[in-house]
Simulated scan of single mutants.
Amino acid sequence: MSINNPYQTYKNNTTVTASPGELTLMLYDGCIKFVNHAKKAIENKNIGDKNLYIQKSQNIIQELMVTLKMEYPISKNMMSLYDYINRRLIEANIRSDVSILEEVEELVTEFRDTWKQVIQLNRQKKYASNDGQA
């Protein structure tokens, strides 16, 4: 008989039931988390962990690139920005440069905060339009 980890069950359910917008938010949060782990690894001179966490950040950025809907003009701009972030992550990995990771963290945090506002505005519009239907 296996004992389930309640936190892991919650985390799995959160991911499975999340909307596409919430999943994007989770990707941004994950990227920020891994960038912070990479910064700590550089400070601790742990090259293996630095590489691992920067690669995890790159994987998230690449996932964000793949999920862009290129029929929207903003997507072309986002693609360029994601490509820039990806190149900076490569450079940070090669140079073990915390300042580059801080730049990446700042950009991704800005994207995450903007995305969070978009989700909140969409929820407000959805609930405002449903008020008259009750």
Rank of each mutant, 00 (worst) to 15 (best):
82 Y>I: 01
123 R>Y: 08
101 L>I: 05
24 T>V: 15
111 F>V: 03
78 M>F: 13
128 A>R: 14
20 P>A: 08
38 A>H: 02
107 L>S: 00
84 Y>T: 04
20 P>K: 12
108 V>A: 01
100 I>G: 03
42 I>N: 07
46 N>D: 14
16 V>C: 00
93 N>G: 06
107 L>N: 07
111 F>H: 04
64 L>H: 08
42 I>Q: 00
44 N>D: 12
100 I>R: 06
133 Q>R: 13
4 N>I: 15
100 I>C: 01
47 I>Q: 09
87 R>T: 09
131 D>A: 14
47 I>L: 11
115 W>Q: 03
100 I>P: 01
104 V>D: 10
114 T>L: 13
62 Q>D: 14
125 K>W: 04
113 D>S: 13
20 P>E: 05
52 L>K: 15
98 V>E: 12
131 D>N: 11
102 E>L: 09
41 A>E: 04
81 L>S: 07
28 Y>M: 08
59 N>A: 14
133 Q>A: 07
7 Y>M: 10
57 S>R: 00
7 Y>A: 09
115 W>P: 03
127 Y>M: 12
107 L>E: 06
98 V>Q: 08
100 I>A: 01
9 T>D: 11
17 T>K: 15
82 Y>S: 02
46 N>G: 00
127 Y>G: 04
112 R>H: 09
126 K>Y: 08
100 I>V: 00
85 I>E: 09
60 I>Y: 01
83 D>H: 10
9 T>R: 14
67 T>V: 04
89 L>N: 04
133 Q>Y: 09
71 E>V: 06
6 P>Y: 09
58 Q>F: 07
109 T>I: 05
14 T>A: 15
55 Q>C: 05
90 I>N: 13
107 L>P: 03
